[in-house]
Amino acid sequence: MNPLLIALLAVLLGPLFVGTWRTSLWGLSMQGLLMAWLALRLGPHPSTPSAWLTLIDLALLRGVAAPTALYQVLRARNVPARHDAIPPNLLSWTLALGSVLVAFNFAQVLVPAPAMEQSIVSVAATGLMLGFLVLATQSATFGQMIAVLRIENAIALFELSGEGHAQSVAIQVGQMLVVAASIVLYRWYLNTVDDPDAPLGDDASEVAL
């Protein structure tokens, strides 16, 4: 397997075993940056607008903007360092490692020929499975955001593996704008959903549209 994909697998798994929110954000950031590197290695020299847009999406939006936006909110609120992406017990860890095995076996069924494509689909499927595992075990807003961003990164990695399936620039721009708007909204929700200082109203007397 390509060393980049091994590194990507490591940043998918690592934050599950180190229980701090900084590690979760670091993992997200590394996923974006490694995927951008992989896109550079897989594709032709980035001379087309489409290739540049892919790099901006992966490196800037997913690798830098999303983790930074969430980091700023948590830092400003002085949130305690401890945050477990999955419950720290043997069952969760077994489920996580089991998910990796299932994902790799599933990828072998989908792409029987052992090649680069199979490896990427394996890691993308792993990212998806682990994203759903994190989502299933989280009740806090931040943890759920991390899970959704993991799932979206896995989908982006899967998209990288599709040879010859070049999207038009307009669609790529549209998808990037959706990701950017989602990040802005996630930041806003992280600020407001769990805010203990927010004023509380009475549903019965609330005047609504």
Partner: peptide, 30 residues
Amino acid sequence: RPRMRASRQASWRYLLFSSVGLGLALLGFM
């Protein structure tokens, strides 16, 4: 609704489910 914590949570859950659902749909297209 600005002063309703439950509405903020409902709104986040809506966005969460929609993001995951539409993400799966995108994966389906791929």
